[in-house]
Simulated scan of single mutants.
Amino acid sequence: MLITEIFKLEDFKESIPYTAIGARTCYSSGDLDYLLNDPRVASREDRAKFLSKLGNYKHFSVFAHSFAYKDLFELDESLIDKYLPETLCTLPKREKAGILALKIASTKFKSHYNPEYPTVVGVSLRHYLEDMLDKDEAEYYKTFEKMAEFDIPIEPLGSQGNTTLIGLIREYDGYAVFYIDNVSRTMTHQLVRHTALNYSQRSQRYVKEDQNLLIIPPSVKGTDISLRKEYISYYLSLIEGYRQIIEEADTKESLRNAVISRMEQFIKEFEKKEEATLEDIFLLTDQLCEAVYDFSVYSGKIKREDARFILPHGRKTTIVVSGTVSWIKDFIIKRTDPHAQWEIQNVAKQMKELLSEQGIDV
């Protein structure tokens, strides 16, 4: 009840679309331009319905991409006193506001407090909705209908490489939202170790992997080794065997044909090669894993969430990352270190450049 008395839904209105784009990233294979034109992101009515569906599932994590700050000193003093022990109510209002800010920051997951602004606290839309659900379930569901009243379009602030800054709050410790595409799951496994940040990643459970290529490290591309054509032929024979089985699968024809076409095209391209580089072996192994994945899904009727266990960590993915600028800076400092792995180091450098373009130094 505390958060919903201090914050209003209107406090989050400008950043609500970031929640929608984070959620659509989980369930869509489209790129950023596609997502920005997706009605569930761009249309306030469709967006509200989509977010309401997530609210029904209690899928709170995506709502963390919407954030707001509040100076509690600006509240009515009686409201501050309501949430403090009676023994503290005789203190000056500014001191009481600081104590309440600390109370919220110490009890709400990933809220934000900085002693430089002792009466200010930052919370996400996630905190607001969770508090509303505890307070009044009927009002909780009405909150999503109210989201349709806000029509704030997303206007990306800049791109560097495969990283786009899609949102930025500048006040106090700020809040930044990044869209990162065409990176490996190996990289995102490292990224999510920075637990102060919030993430929405493309789902292998709900999104087909049919066109999701492997990220090849530069060291692999630059390796001067080769293997005989027999190695290629062996891989292709296995892939062709799975292709023939999938061709007989009792499944939707359009899906089956798309898989068969992709496999045939891959086989055709590799049949021309007279020797295999290490990069070729990576790609052949990836496609063999995908053939087993396709065989499991289309012939074995295995759910994607289980079939994905065979897929390599190097598969490309998409992820939305958000957090206070102070925590984003912490990530950048740690991952621009020369000892950081090349892929996450590149992303950290791109984030740094994008913030620098906005006048924020790291």
Rank of each mutant, 00 (worst) to 15 (best):
E5M: 04
F7L: 02
F12K: 08
F12S: 04
K13W: 00
S15E: 06
P17W: 00
S28Y: 02
Y34F: 11
R40I: 04
D46W: 10
R47M: 07
L54V: 03
G55I: 13
N56S: 06
Y57Q: 12
K58C: 05
H59K: 07
S61L: 01
V62P: 02
A64L: 03
H65N: 04
H65E: 02
F67A: 03
D71I: 01
L72H: 07
F73M: 00
F73E: 00
E74C: 03
L84N: 08
L84T: 12
L84M: 08
E86F: 10
L91V: 04
P92D: 06
L100F: 05
A101P: 04
L102D: 05
L102Y: 03
I104M: 07
A105H: 07
S106A: 09
T107H: 04
K108T: 05
F109L: 08
Y113S: 00
E116I: 02
E116Y: 03
Y117N: 02
G122N: 02
V123L: 08
V123D: 05
V123T: 02
S124G: 09
Y128K: 13
A138C: 02
Y140E: 11
Y140T: 10
K142Y: 08
T143Q: 12
F144Q: 01
M147P: 05
A148E: 09
I152P: 02
I152S: 06
P156V: 15
Q160E: 13
T164M: 01
I166E: 09
I166H: 06
L168S: 03
V177R: 06
Y179R: 08
I180E: 13
S184K: 08
L191M: 11
R193E: 14
H194T: 07
T195F: 15
T195S: 12
A196S: 13
L197C: 02
K208I: 14
P218I: 09
S219F: 11
I225A: 01
E230T: 09
Y231N: 08
I232A: 07
Y234I: 01
Y235E: 05
I239S: 00
Y242K: 00
R243I: 07
R243M: 10
E248P: 10
T251F: 11
T251A: 07
K252S: 10
I260T: 14
E264W: 12
E264P: 13
F266P: 15
I267Q: 15
F270R: 14
F270Q: 15
E271N: 15
K273C: 11
E279D: 14
D280S: 14
Y293S: 14
S296V: 14
V297M: 08
V297C: 14
F309H: 12
P312M: 06
H313P: 07
R315C: 15
I319W: 03
T324P: 06
S326Y: 00
S326K: 05
W327M: 03
K334S: 14
R335Y: 10
T336Q: 13
P338H: 14
H339I: 14
H339M: 13
Q341K: 13
W342D: 04
Q345T: 05
V347E: 12
K352I: 01
L354S: 01
L355A: 02
Q358V: 14
G359F: 09
I360K: 08
